[in-house]
Nucleic acid binder design. Sequence first.
DNA 1: CCCAAACATACCCCGCTAGCTATATAGCCG
DNA 2: CGGCTATATAGCTAGCGGGGTATGTTTGGG
Lengths: 109, 109
Amino acid sequence: MFGSVTFEVLAEPVRRRILDLLRERPRLVGELTAELGLSQPGTSKHLRVLREAGLVRVRAEAQRRWYELDPAPLAEVDAWLAPYRWMWADRFDALERHLDADPDPVEDR
Amino acid sequence: MFGSVTFEVLAEPVRRRILDLLRERPRLVGELTAELGLSQPGTSKHLRVLREAGLVRVRAEAQRRWYELDPAPLAEVDAWLAPYRWMWADRFDALERHLDADPDPVEDR
DNA sequence: CCCAAACATACCCCGCTAGCTATATAGCCG
DNA sequence: CGGCTATATAGCTAGCGGGGTATGTTTGGG
């Protein structure tokens, strides 16, 4: 319902990166800006999207904003994934071959 | 590497729907078109994206095309999700409250 | 007080994409 | 073999989203 937006939010590599960074510890906008290598407003924009998706929370401290992870919406992604999970268990070696051994994944058509 | 595209592909609700349908059984393009309620070329376009992402395979039978699920790339999503999974275990009831009990999820801002 | 620091918002631009319609291609059937 | 069925591709358009720069707002420090 509300979380179908979660997939769209996670589609952005930068935002997944932000979540990965926040998984370690809360961060300031400035820190994230530095690590991501994009402009401060750009970072703020991504953080806004993450905030409105419920994936991060903000804690104000003077002019600083501490952003911290809220993994709750990820449960929805996990729930969607659940019925598929058993399927690749037996094919896992196939995936490994695909990821490890194949140096140049074949383009379709 | 190749699969970072998987997230972008899954961002589309129609494509997740297609995967859910293919999880039951292989389907023809026509069947999918009917169930999705969009144009046949639109369906074919989504199927092309899914095919190039390695999420579906095609089997030709005369003019018919049987599309079937290939869940392998989903393992990458699962892998990304893995380090987060323990986090909402203790908050699961909170999410349940959010999803079940709250009739009108609060819009952010 | 006033300036600088930290962040958010506003605005613009451009590329991508999802939808459509029209058309091409391929194979069965009569 | 002609036309119909099933699907793919091409081409177009509208809207969205992510990048940037410019500016507003808040708060602490000198």
